[in-house]
Design a protein around this nucleic acid. Structure first.
Lengths: 342, 342
DNA sequence: ATGAAAGCGCTAACAT
DNA sequence: ATGTTAGCGCTTTCAT
């Protein structure tokens, strides 16, 4: 194992001092070109690797960013992380990932280790268990930039970025109406989560605007899995007055419905239309393609990263916390494009 | 912004010295229980957060691990990362993620920043462009534990962990043969990557073992995308003597084939069987379900993390580099289960 | 059982 | 344009 060469070693060999070498390496003014050149050359010769830890200790900056999510292996989160990483890498930051598995305790532990590691910022998407936020208060008190994305903590006065779930639903359902469907069912999630509440509200508002009747019997709350989708699609289709379209708050239960309907040889989209939410990768891969609401996960990550960079560059306190709401995009695929219109 | 309390502050308030406090906090022997208790209490009172950077500088350990992958938002890699993160978190390590987008230059840059950051280990899955490895030599020279997973660098004498691609292919093709298919085509990737070479070899060996003819015309190398799968499935089916099954080294090109075949109303699996590789999430969601080879991504990540922990605990040099090959599992779904056997 | 002192490698304030 | 000095917060000898 080679001994690592330090700034002092370089200084000694050049008969100068560590500070000069340090300044030369960072190309600061007040050092002659000749010296800078000599330093750079020697650094290269010895393959000098600056010690980021030492530099971090001295400067109080670790050039590191923590990202806390429920799980990294989900299309949405991994895309957000990918977007974040791409942006901050260019600015010289490293990304530490933390997955909470939706557990409050892990969320708290991660906050502590990130604080101990003196990260320059923390980006968080909340876990399902999180109802309190004193662990996040500590981040703010430490003067570290804190940003929430997607699953945000409404009570905290920090920057948040999310998509407009209401608008996504509204667009999806309006599209179905335009395609001539007029008895549209809804699969939703638990009402205590704002995402699902907003998606349901968007659905209702779109129906109201089109003067369509809201029928509670075809508004179904389930756990949004493929199986739930199958089961509830069956339930719907066996009603006296079955729907002619299903709008699901999740691609997975939409898929379940789609699979059930295909099995029963319903014509999709002509007999019945299906729309999902999230634009999971598989939606474009199945047959027929599933119309879905895209959450711009990659852009969300990039935007989030840019907000972080802006905050650190301005310094804590010189930045007005903001709430940013991205408009989702409806991706119209075959599952909802009925040829026979009204 | 609150001033951070240091070990010195605690020492002063207790009329003792930093070293005593440090030892007490780490529960080292040679400190009275009374003192330890007092220190812990005060630390709690002030919510003392140890400065990991300072500790890292002094001890030469950052308790951080770098993971370099081509892309984080792919089912396989994100699952591996998830597995790694779960294991090392328990051991007190942070995970820095790095995505190369298959670019050699980024791979080299990441190696440098990780070395600068004095990480305790680096886990890598190679990018497509990587043909040289001097950037990895630097890691070994620095005495930092280096482990390759999945896409490994054969030339380097370090620990590698991968799945047995040959075996996966062999199982997949043997299964097709057992199902009565006897003219099996193959979609493969670039030969210079161990994974694709091995998958092709396994395919050939399985055919040989069943005394089936190897026909170079139905062994196709493409870029393994959905589009390539569609295009090449079309090409195959338009041959004078088309195959009755397709084994693809990637789920994506298998899907492309499947979509093309369905469009042309071929009966799957009765007329033609399709098998993919990787067990991407969508394979179980489409219709018919796509038979695929599961790579145990989560376990691979966990195993990888355990190897890393073992290496750091033993210290560089006290560890024999090894090659670990996990047996993949064939997940048989409908796309290959022909009812009419030989 | 505790303290004193040195230093990890770098940066920044203050000289010259 | 360069050098001197001090110190970031912790850990680790070596004393006592």
């Amino acid at each position: 194992m080679k001994k690592r060469v330090t700034i002092q070693d370089l200084a000694k060999e050049l008969n100068t001092t560590p500070s000069t070498v340090s300044r030369a390496l960072r190309d600061l003014p007040g050092i002659s070109e000749a010296m800078k050149e000599a330093v750079r050359e020697l650094a290269k010769k010895y393959d000098y690797q600056p010690n980021a830890i030492a530099s971090g200790l001295r400067s109080g900056k670790s050039n590191t960013l923590g990202v806390i999510v429920p799980r990294v292996n989900r299309d949405f989160f991994s895309s957000v992380i990918s977007g974040i990483e791409d942006v901050v890498f260019e600015a010289g930051y490293n990304v530490i990932i933390c997955q909470t598995h939706d557990r409050l305790e892990k969320e708290q532990q991660y906050i502590n280790t990130l604080l101990n590691g003196r990260v320059d910022g923390i980006l968080v998407s909340l876990g399902l268990e999180t109802r309190e936020h004193c662990h996040f208060e500590k981040v703010v008190e430490a003067g570290i930039s804190l940003i929430f994305f997607d699953r945000v903590c409404e009570e905290m006065d920090v920057t948040k970025i999310m998509i407009d779930d209401f608008d996504g639903s509204f667009k999806a359902v309006s599209h179905l109406v335009k395609m001539g469907y007029n008895r549209i069912a809804h699969f939703g999630g638990p009402d205590f989560l704002n995402v699902y509440r907003n998606r349901k509200d968007g659905y209702i508002r779109a129906l109201e605007k089109s003067n369509l009747k809201i029928d509670e019997r075809i508004i179904i709350q389930n756990d949004l899995t493929v199986e739930a989708g199958k089961r509830d699609a069956e339930r719907l289709m066996k009603m006296d007055n079955p729907p002619d379209a299903i709008f699901s708050a999740s691609d997975y239960s939409a898929l379940g419905a789609l699979l059930y309907l295909k099995e029963k040889t319903y014509e999709i989209p002509d007999q019945i239309g299906v729309v999902g939410f999230s634009n999971e990768k598989f939606t474009s891969l199945i047959d027929p393609g599933l119309t879905s609401v895209d959450q711009h996960s990659d852009e969300l990550g990039k935007y989030c990263a840019e907000l972080f960079l802006e905050e650190v560059n301005r310094g804590a306190g010189n930045f007005v916390p903001r709430k940013i709401i991205l408009n989702p995009k409806l991706l119209i695929r075959r599952s909802s494009q009925r040829k026979v219109k009204i």
